[in-house]
């Protein structure tokens, strides 16, 4: 390489320079894969919105831009009283479950992380091992449980299996590992009891993890289908995914209405994401430590 080929590396030089051109096959392939990945992510959403703007006769056309776009589906769904009920059901269930997970997953995670007690490891492994059991296997015991406690077709029945999750506990435990013991010991010397330490010292330090967990849990419950479908009987207790799946009649699935409902139901998830993503900034914990 001659001296003239050396690329400028100062910030000013980089700013004025056009984006570097792909140099080799490797880079082209990488970009291609990313592009395909992007397409795979965006297309379903594009089709969801496109279908929600189509008339029923056009639904099975693959064109992305509807020939005669219409908001009729939105009017229909929003005027249908059931959708509101499902929407509120979903909001209540996803919100309560999220709050419950944030509190209890972090409480258990904190305990497993910061307290040394006999059997701690066994408890942790036991919790983790529940991650390996698929939901499909659990719905029958859950159903029997709900039946015998009289929880069928109730909010409690929909929510109880998800009020605490092994994944959330694991996530919080791992994040609490990054909270230096010094903080906790300092608080102990300052006279806080263990519950106060957890709430006033440890929890604010793991805000990024709490935000991530909130997003996961909210989305998971917002989109949950199998268990709400099984545990609910009355249309009033349906959540959005369960309710939407019933749009149309036995002969014909009303895809345009399902897609409209789905499009509307993405709005709360976007709001939740926008609220919490700003908390997901790593390094907050480190600010109080050595500089």
């Amino acid at each position: 390489m001659t001296a003239t080929e050396i690329r400028p590396t100062t910030a000013a030089a980089l700013e004025t320079k056009a984006p570097p051109k792909p140099r080799n096959m490797g880079q082209i392939i990488r970009w291609l894969l990313l592009f395909l990945g992007g397409i795979a992510m965006v297309m379903p959403i594009a089709y969801m919105i496109s279908t929600s703007l189509k008339w029923p006769h056009e639904v099975y056309n693959v064109n992305l831009i509807p020939d005669e776009p219409t908001l009729e589906n939105y009017l229909y769904v929003l005027e249908d009283g059931r959708f509101y009920k499902w929407f509120i059901n979903s909001i209540i269930i996803a919100t309560l479950t999220t709050i419950s997970n944030l509190l209890f997953d972090s409480l258990v995670g904190y305990t497993l992380c910061k307290f040394k007690f006999p059997g701690r490891q066994i408890v942790f492994i036991a919790i983790l091992s529940t991650l390996m059991i698929p939901t499909e296997m659990l719905v029958i015991p859950w159903y029997l449980m709900s039946q015998s406690f009289g929880w069928l077709d109730s909010y409690w029945g929909i929510m109880f299996p998800g009020l605490m999750t092994a994944f959330g506990t694991f996530l919080m435990k791992q994040f609490f590992e990054s909270v230096p013991d010094d903080f906790i010991e300092a608080a102990r010397i300052d006279g806080l009891n263990e519950l106060q330490i957890w709430w006033t010292v440890a929890m604010p330090l793991v805000k990024p993890a709490l935000a991530a967990l909130a997003i996961f849990v909210f989305l998971g419950n917002w989109t949950a289908f199998l268990w709400p479908l099984i545990v609910t009987n009355s249309v009033e207790m349906y959540t959005i995914p369960v309710g939407l799946s019933g749009f149309g009649d036995e002969a014909d699935v009303a895809w345009e209405l399902i897609m409209t409902g789905a499009a509307i139901s993405t709005i709360p998830t976007l709001v939740v994401f926008l609220i919490f993503q700003r908390f997901i900034i790593r390094g907050v914990v480190m600010a109080g430590l050595k500089g």
């Binding site: 010094d182 903080f183 600010a287 109080g288």
Partner: peptide
């Protein structure tokens, strides 16, 4: 006695001042 009952105060190597 618990640390808080000992009438002591401690300064840590990592300062342990609460960032929030």
């Amino acid at each position: 006695l618990e640390p808080k009952e000992r009438d002591i105060a401690m300064v840590f190597q990592n300062y342990a001042i609460y960032p929030h």
